[in-house]
Amino acid sequence: MYNFTADDDVTAHIRTLVEHFVPVAGMTDVELAEWIRAQGIDILVDLNGHTAHNRLPLFLRKPAPIQVTWLGYLATTGLPTMDYRLTDARADPPGRTESLHTETLWRLPDGLWCYEPHRFAPAVAPLPALRTGRLTFASFNNPAKVSVTILGVWARILQAVSDARLLLIRSALAARTTELERFFAGRGVDPRRVEFLERRSTADYLALYDRVDVALDTWPCAGGTTTCDALWMGVPTVTLAGDRSFSRSGASVLASVGLPDLIAETADDYVDRATAVAGDLPRLATLRDTLRERVRASPLVDARRFAAAIEHAYLAMAERALAGAEGARP
């Protein structure tokens, strides 16, 4: 079921991959719920959570016996009718986040992410620090994810690596750049060391990583696709894993490619890990040369393996539901 009105090349490609492609944006929740029941759909999956264009009111009607949420919103929907949320043990460590969910957490074995690198991604460039003689940090995440807490941590990193630069995506809010310049200046960091870049095409965005030695993840809302992009472009990312699912997405991605030493558990730890990797140019150069192949060989981009894990999860959910139904019979 397709709940958007856009009809482009991506939409056309998706149509070729599925048996049935049903646009439903024009249907009311009542109409769609009746249609789902009439079709006998067993498992209904939400990909939006509490983000734009979601159909969560539909899920409140429980049109399918098994309802699952995944990917678009890394937290609980809060719906008593949502049965499961797909996740993994790094994003939601067992025993730590169950109380924050109305759903049962279903942890996929390798990770909750499946990344397809951009086919037009440029080749990985040599480590820029070897050319420029200084370290360049960057965060190309959505500016809305840049909190005052993580800004303070980044300022500490720039204080510790005195000649380093930081690249950020410019906010659409006109006054935000001036605010950030004042923020860094107030913490002893020359604002000229922080460069604000305009949004650009995906190809040009990927090319920006040619200028970056180390990526810095946001907090409390960590990156997902942006972290994957950075790794594919040979740039290691340091992340701060919090106590919520949405602050642990970077940890999930890094664990899936075998880089747990870049996962910090506290702000002090984040500073220490970022400055340590920044100060180890031989390791950075090695990571630059090997990260793409490391990602290519990891579960993160193994679509068949991921699909098999999803299929296994859905079948297990169905078996559990059938067993419960049998047990409930008099």
Rank of each mutant, 00 (worst) to 15 (best):
G188V: 12
D8N: 15
A325T: 12
P117M: 08
G111D: 04
P126T: 05
R187Q: 15
L135M: 15
P94C: 08
R283Y: 03
A52K: 11
F4Y: 14
L79R: 05
V235M: 03
P94V: 07
S171R: 08
L47S: 04
V301H: 01
T104P: 00
F120W: 11
L262A: 03
S201Q: 10
P93W: 04
V30Y: 11
F196G: 05
V10M: 11
M317K: 06
E195R: 15
A175K: 11
T104G: 01
D261L: 03
A309G: 09
G223W: 07
R107Y: 03
R55D: 02
S298H: 07
E103A: 01
A278Q: 02
R134Y: 13
A297S: 14
L315G: 06
E98I: 00
T225N: 13
R248S: 08
T132S: 13
A321Q: 13
A285F: 00
F4P: 00
A75G: 11
A89C: 06
L158E: 09
L208Y: 08
T177M: 11
L47C: 10
A276W: 07
C228L: 08
A303H: 13
R107Q: 09
Y205D: 09
D213A: 06
R273P: 01
V24E: 07
A251W: 04
R294T: 15
G279I: 06
L262Q: 03
Y270A: 00
Y209C: 03
D229M: 06
Y314L: 15
A207Q: 13
F59C: 02
H13N: 10
A12I: 07
V238P: 02
A255Y: 04
L130N: 07
D9P: 00
R119I: 10
P117W: 09
P122A: 10
S162H: 13
R199E: 13
R329E: 14
D229L: 06
L240E: 08
Y115W: 10
V212Q: 02
A264V: 05
V238D: 05
N142R: 09
T178G: 14
A307E: 13
M27Q: 15
Y209V: 04
P57N: 08
T77C: 03
G234K: 05
M82F: 08
M27T: 08
F246S: 01
T227N: 14
M317S: 04
P126S: 06
K62G: 01
F196H: 07
D46E: 04
S139T: 13
D269I: 06
T225A: 14
A125C: 04
E293G: 05
P191H: 10
D92K: 00
A313F: 09
T132G: 00
A308M: 09
T266N: 05
L216P: 05
G78E: 07
L166P: 02
L287F: 09
W70F: 10
A267V: 06
A25Q: 14
V22C: 09
H312L: 11
L168M: 13
D92E: 12
H53K: 11
A285M: 01
T97F: 02
T286V: 02
V45H: 08
P122D: 12
T266L: 04
L112P: 00
E195C: 10
R119V: 14
E98A: 00
T226S: 14
A144E: 13
H50V: 00
D217H: 05
L112R: 08
A123W: 02
E19S: 12
L254P: 00
A33S: 15
F21L: 07
A129N: 00
F184C: 08
A155I: 06
A255C: 10
L262C: 05
D280L: 04
E319W: 12
L130I: 02
W113F: 15
